Simulated assay, not measured.
Amino acid sequence: MTETDISSSELKKEIRRKMLALRRALSDDEAEKKADRLTEQILSLPEYQKAKRIMAFLAMKGESNLDRLIALALSEGKEVYVPVCLPERQMEAGRLLDMDHFVKGPLGLRDLPKGYDTITPEELDLVLVPGVACDRAGNRLGMGAGYYDRYLSRVPLEKRVAALWDFQVVEAIPSEPFDRKMAKIVTDTGIIVTKRG
């Protein structure tokens, strides 16, 4: 391992530590207001308006919350899918039929009950991606397990949109060959078209 690898990995750890602390510091009231504004920003995206099949995510505490957006998408007749973690750090998209249809997963997370329908990554029209942080070049920092990077390798770049709180957009994130970039970043205060290449 080279010196650059070590510093890149250390920098990612430092950004992760700082961002998770900021997320934990958000009050429920602040998070709810931010979630409403984030929903409005996503609703304004042409990519969202045209999409018939969307992959979203079920937020953990402090994470950018898409519950209201998911409920609206379902009421508009869009198909909504959420990530389901599989062995060997793989992931699939399971269809969510309504906002009450969950089982409690590990760490108190919401999971789909068994028997859900799936869709291939290539069939999705839009993938809303969570993250710990993103930079304006479209580099994304996740929790470090690589589930999304593996999954997004099969999703065209233009369909990948990060959904984050505004403070999670940072100056720069070290990027490695297996990291998947975002085409846009949507936050509670605006939409960033990433400066790629």
Score class of each variant (00 low, 15 high):
residue 1 M to A: 15
residue 1 M to H: 13
residue 2 T to W: 06
residue 2 T to P: 05
residue 4 T to Y: 07
residue 5 D to K: 13
residue 6 I to G: 04
residue 8 S to T: 02
residue 11 L to A: 12
residue 12 K to L: 09
residue 15 I to M: 02
residue 15 I to K: 01
residue 17 R to L: 11
residue 19 M to P: 04
residue 19 M to N: 02
residue 20 L to Y: 07
residue 20 L to D: 02
residue 20 L to M: 14
residue 21 A to Y: 10
residue 21 A to T: 13
residue 24 R to P: 00
residue 24 R to D: 11
residue 26 L to K: 11
residue 29 D to Q: 14
residue 29 D to A: 13
residue 30 E to W: 03
residue 32 E to V: 06
residue 32 E to F: 05
residue 34 K to Y: 15
residue 37 R to I: 00
residue 37 R to T: 01
residue 38 L to D: 01
residue 38 L to P: 13
residue 38 L to M: 09
residue 39 T to P: 08
residue 40 E to D: 15
residue 40 E to I: 14
residue 40 E to V: 15
residue 42 I to W: 04
residue 43 L to A: 02
residue 45 L to I: 12
residue 45 L to V: 11
residue 47 E to Q: 14
residue 49 Q to W: 07
residue 50 K to N: 12
residue 50 K to M: 12
residue 51 A to C: 09
residue 51 A to F: 09
residue 53 R to M: 13
residue 54 I to R: 00
residue 54 I to T: 02
residue 55 M to L: 06
residue 55 M to W: 01
residue 55 M to T: 00
residue 57 F to V: 00
residue 59 A to P: 09
residue 60 M to C: 04
residue 61 K to C: 02
residue 65 N to K: 02
residue 66 L to W: 00
residue 67 D to M: 06
residue 71 A to W: 06
residue 74 L to F: 10
residue 78 K to A: 08
residue 79 E to T: 00
residue 80 V to K: 00
residue 83 P to K: 06
residue 85 C to K: 04
residue 87 P to M: 04
residue 88 E to K: 07
residue 89 R to K: 15
residue 90 Q to R: 15
residue 92 E to W: 06
residue 93 A to Q: 03
residue 95 R to Q: 15
residue 95 R to E: 08
residue 96 L to N: 06
residue 96 L to F: 05
residue 96 L to S: 08
residue 101 H to L: 04
residue 107 L to H: 15
residue 108 G to R: 03
residue 116 Y to D: 03
residue 117 D to T: 14
residue 117 D to S: 15
residue 118 T to Q: 08
residue 119 I to F: 01
residue 119 I to Q: 01
residue 124 L to Y: 06
residue 125 D to E: 04
residue 125 D to C: 05
residue 126 L to M: 10
residue 127 V to R: 00
residue 129 V to P: 04
residue 130 P to E: 04
residue 130 P to R: 07
residue 133 A to G: 02
residue 134 C to R: 00
residue 134 C to Y: 08
residue 136 R to F: 02
residue 136 R to I: 08
residue 138 G to R: 09
residue 139 N to E: 04
residue 140 R to W: 10
residue 141 L to R: 01
residue 142 G to W: 13
residue 142 G to H: 12
residue 143 M to Q: 15
residue 145 A to F: 12
residue 145 A to E: 13
residue 146 G to A: 03
residue 146 G to R: 06
residue 149 D to K: 12
residue 149 D to G: 14
residue 150 R to H: 15
residue 151 Y to I: 11
residue 151 Y to F: 15
residue 154 R to D: 14
residue 155 V to F: 03
residue 155 V to R: 00
residue 157 L to H: 07
residue 158 E to M: 07
residue 158 E to C: 04
residue 159 K to S: 04
residue 159 K to F: 09
residue 159 K to T: 11
residue 160 R to L: 10
residue 164 L to Q: 03
residue 166 D to L: 01
residue 170 V to L: 09
residue 170 V to E: 01
residue 171 E to N: 15
residue 172 A to Y: 10
residue 173 I to F: 09
residue 174 P to G: 03
residue 177 P to L: 10
residue 177 P to T: 06
residue 177 P to S: 05
residue 180 R to G: 09
residue 180 R to L: 14
residue 183 A to Y: 13
residue 186 V to E: 00
residue 190 G to L: 09
residue 192 I to R: 00
residue 193 V to M: 10
residue 193 V to A: 10
residue 193 V to C: 10
residue 194 T to L: 02
